[in-house]
Structures are given as C-alpha cells and as structure tokens.
Amino acid sequence: MKYLYFPGCSLKSSGRSYEESLLSVLKKMNVGVEEIDDWNCCGATNYMAMNERNAIGITARNLALAEKQGKEDIMAPCAACYMGLLKTQKYIETEPKVKETVLTNLKKSGLEFENTSKVRHPLDIFINDISLDTIKDNVYAPLKGVKVACYYGCQLTRPYATFDDQRDPQSMENIVKALGGTPVEWPIKTRCCSGSMTSTVSEIGLRMSYLILKEAKDRGADVMITACPLCQFNLECFQGKMSGKYGENVKMPVMYFTQLMGMAFGLDKKELGLHRMLSPELSLS
C-alpha cells in the first residue's frame, strides 16, 4: 500500500506534529508514503475569495504533479487542502470554461492533466484501506476509560467528501473504539471553529472555538481529537485566552487523532510531536 502525500503548508510549520504523528503511525502499519514533489499551497479559502480561476489553477497544478509522479491515490490530511483538491476536480469536471483555462495554463508549464487521481483523507484511508482490524492489531496500550470528543469541523465532511456522513460522521469514533477508548456523544462535532477568524475578528473567532471546547468539557470528555491543522490550532492554542475572556476554564488536551493513535500504539512521544503541544497533556494511566 502506498500513497502520494500532499502535506500542505500548515503540516510543515504550526501543524508539524500532525505530519510527524501521521507518518509514524503509517510506518508502524507498513504503509508507504511519497511526498508530491514541488507541491504548492492549495490557496485555502483566500484564493477563492480573490480569483476563482487562479484558485482552481494552482490546485490543478498539484493534481497534475501527482499524476506525473504516479497512479497512487493522493493523501491530503489538512481538511482545507483536501476539500480544495476535491473541489478543483469537480470544477474541472463540470465547468468547461474553467477547465479550458486550466488545461491551457498547465500545458504552458509543461504538465499533462487527465484528472484521474483519487483524493483521500487519512481518515478514509485508515477506515477503508487499512481497516479497523489492523488498527486493533497494533494497539499496545488500550485507551481504557478514556473519553474522547471527536471533532471534525467543517470542510472535512462537507460538501464533497463521500467517505462518511455529512451530518453525523463516525470515522473517528470508530477509530477511538478500535483503540479501546470511549467516544462521547455530542451534537456539534461538525460545527465550524471559525477558521482564520481567531486572528482576524478574534471577538467572534475565539467565541466560536470556545463554544466547541465548552461543549466537549460539559459532556465529560478527557481529550478532544481533530483531523485538521486549523481546527487544532484554534482549539489548542487559545485556551488560556478563552478561559480568561469568558470566565470558564476550558483547558483540556486537544490533539490530532493520529497522536492519540500513536499513544495507543505505544509510540515514542517525540515521534508523535507531543513535545510541541500547548494544551494540557493527556495522561494514560
């Protein structure tokens, strides 16, 4: 099993521990990964707000580079990159004018493009290719008694993804169960964390992320897991600020789902990037 890996910008900087833990966990399960050579930024939500053709164009370059490198599926761990890649494929399929511009530009830069790669999120890969049984087989320290709030955020399941339910996804819950933990029931797991608004309109951004942490705490979660570097950043790095601002302590461990998997697999803290986290540590005892 092998995948072409599209990390995106965050996984190389503030979200490094997502890359570290994802690659460590995949290695433990003998899954091969090859980074797409010379990939560029996916444009996130900002490119679409400025120029549609260019937003589709820069992402199409990544898809074309992947095709050039191999026939394997593309693995995109960041929810925004993942959604952007799916959206680009869809636009090229359904909007002939956009397609024409993109193909002409790709040709100019020496790239062929057939739009044939499959874009996958690691959650999809873990559940549908690797299987929950293999995950179970790798558990070394079961998460006995650990209550986990699985947070999906928005763009991971909406609007293009088909690997899970758009309103009540279960992929992470199933992984948590395979690790021996207990997922908590909570209705707001696909509510938006506000994206980059924590740094632009922080009065709104912080409040949105605060509500998510508070709900998880109220439901008795010991830890929250995420599958997107932006959600992770918002929920992990502003806990002190929010607790002060809204007069309620919302400090709790927030980590990537791959870090929690790695902990249950008995992997080393450093391999999982746990030394980089700013939220309280989850102790398994």
Binding site: S13, R16, D38, W39, N105, L111, R276
Partner: peptide, 26 residues
C-alpha cells in the same frame, strides 16, 4: 516548540506556478 518557521524558501518551480495564474480578473 519548533512550530514557527522563520524562513521558507518556497517552491522550486516558481515560473511553473506563475503560468497557472491567468490574467483574468475572476
């Protein structure tokens, strides 16, 4: 914690990326 990278050299083929940016306004 090593999460703030001060320098990032960007991609190798910047000219290739420029080609993807059409001059169209939207």
């Amino acid at each position: 914690t090593g999460r703030l990278i001060l320098f990032e050299k960007g991609i190798k083929n910047k000219a290739g990326l420029k080609q993807m940016l059409s001059s169209s306004k939207n």
